[in-house]
Nucleic acid binder design. Structure first.
Lengths: 337, 337
DNA sequence: TTGTAAGCGTTATCAA
DNA sequence: TTGATAACGCTTACAA
């Protein structure tokens, strides 16, 4: 069932069917009766034009690739939703790719995306440190937008993780904390490294030295937060507050603290990062930093769409920075005396 | 940059380039040196064949659509990941569509998916009650697989929610509970309705009447679990146990109970459903039913791929049922006396 | 072993 | 206002 069949059934030429189905601004020249006849046939046989043929001809697929580490990480679903909603509004389809921060998987996906000739790609997290992404898209004029800070020559949507973490530390020192432990994350994530950097810088600014013993690296999953918090809390002079690089580890940490007989926040205060949807429903409700992931996804898609319209031109690797907010809830208090 | 350019640069014909790049089992007839020459050019210029053209010709896009209500619902990410991993292994791309259980959005996405000529579609949750999905795909020989119970004539991957909920109720009555409250979900979800049905049936089987006052409907989000649990717990003779139709509402319920000064499980036992990743890290750790969503996604994709291979033939609307397991953790105890 | 050319389902150009 | 036809980039008979 193709445009020729429809044309035959309606007793017109394929050109006419095309004009009815894909009206161009300039040429509104189909007689109402003819249009009617065509539409009737289209409706009767349930014909839908083949977008592959259209894309081939117009060199435009109306599809974007969304590359991220792992959709199972609760940080990403709102971002994906933001991209998807904006894409759907703007008339684009979204192809999802989970890389697990793995170079080989990333390379394979990039290959696939280029072969399908996606109009653009949104890279969120993880892959942004991979140099392989630098030039692959160039010959195909594939537009790229990055979500998060990165080392690539593409425009991006960001959040100031250093400053946000500074606000967290400021809040804690304001409460009187001096021994503030940190549950860090993998070096492969620039986002996480910025949070670590924010922790360091703020501590220094507050006149508190950076103490290596108070920092341990997790893998961003709940269990590692549980493990690391357990170690940190078991130290001879334990920290009076714990900050985690993300909420998943913070939740794990809260469990560990509770299991160790420690009360949050009476014995140790706890702060997370991301403001995942469950954060406000655990008890004590988790104090954390809200990151506008949904908006970031939407903004990335919109930025991409704008680049499509502008057509050629250089990418302009500027960054748009959205703001975070510290969500003060119940998991922090003054340190025990 | 197309196959002709490559052919010219390598001093061969386009047919030869094609044969090198897309070797068919039958025709291994390219001289090694020629092949070498072609591959060198391909590598040098970074050429990637246009899959649109290939798809147009072969009537096969190697793409599947994944239609679900909302990726932000923590139930879905593992399912999506399961689909994606299997798809990537089998050589398929995945196009994501969030319908919000909305008829119009669903219709729009279905339209888009058909226009891109996806080889198949995986429908997970929500949309399965929509009659519009019955015949749309037929004329395009688009294969369809459903995840979850449904009313459509397609094969599916399921889980026995009625039996699983029966196990939950059995566990609670075994503990001595008689007044078991239920936080239900929207009627639009067959999955959720099966859980409600399981609750009813098991109660009846246990010789406990179904008491309308103990059942209230939520919307599957945390806040509604919080609200509904609050109402249920405020009743003159409050339930000694609460079962939620999903974990998100269970977490909200736990917060409500805690805020009302009730202890879980000493004063009221609580059971969730889904075994979301955070469930085992909240305290008390949530007793819940583990649903193999990742495997379900993978199985759906594999089933779809098998249908592609088999080619024509009738769809065979059979169901493959995977099993759930009750995860007994800390949120249940015998009822208070 | 390689090349020529038809054709996949559209849109766009030009003529009628 | 409509129609014939050449592309788009690839694969695949068929010919050489």
């Amino acid at each position: 069932m193709n445009i020729r069949d429809v044309a035959a059934a309606a007793g017109v030429s394929v050109a006419t069917v095309s004009r009815v189905l894909s009206p161009k601004p300039g040429s509104q020249t189909v007689r109402p009766e003819t249009r009617q006849r065509v539409l009737e046939v289209v409706d009767r046989v349930g014909y839908r034009p083949n977008d592959l043929a259209r894309a081939l001809l117009q060199d435009r697929t109306a599809t974007v690739g969304l590359v991220l580490p792992d959709i199972s990480n609760p940080y990403y679903p709102p971002l994906v939703r933001g991209v998807e909603d904006a894409a759907s509004t703007l008339g684009y389809r979204v192809m999802l790719c989970n890389t697990d921060r793995d170079e080989e998987k990333t390379a394979t996906y990039v290959d696939t995306l280029i072969k399908t000739r996606v109009d653009g790609i949104i890279i969120a997290g993880g892959s942004t440190t991979m140099p392989m992404l630098r030039d692959v898209f160039e010959p195909y004029r594939t537009k790229v937008v990055v979500v998060g800070r990165h080392e690539l020559e593409y425009p991006s949507i960001q959040v100031d993780n250093v400053a946000a973490m500074g606000e967290v530390i400021g809040y804690l020192t304001g409460l009187g904390h001096r021994r503030i432990g940190f549950i860090a994350g993998p070096a492969s994530s620039i986002t996480v490294q910025d949070r670590v950097e924010g922790y360091r810088a703020a501590l220094r600014a507050a006149g508190i030295g950076y103490n290596e013993d108070l920092v341990r690296e997790g893998d961003l999953q709940e269990q590692s937060g549980y493990d690391v918090a357990g170690e940190l809390a078991a130290q001879p002079t334990r920290p009076t507050a714990l900050v985690a690089a993300n909420d998943r580890m913070a939740v794990g940490a809260m469990a560990a603290l509770t299991d160790a007989g420690l009360r949050v926040p009476a014995d140790v205060s706890l702060v997370g990062f991301d403001d995942v949807s469950l954060a406000s429903y655990i008890r004590p409700a988790l104090t954390t930093v809200s990151v506008p992931t949904y908006d970031m996804g939407g903004a990335a898609m919109e930025l991409l769409a704008r680049e499509f319209e502008e057509g050629g031109g250089t990418p302009e690797p500027g960054a748009r920075v959205l703001s975070t907010t510290l969500m003060v809830r119940e998991s922090c208090a003054a340190p025990p005396r």
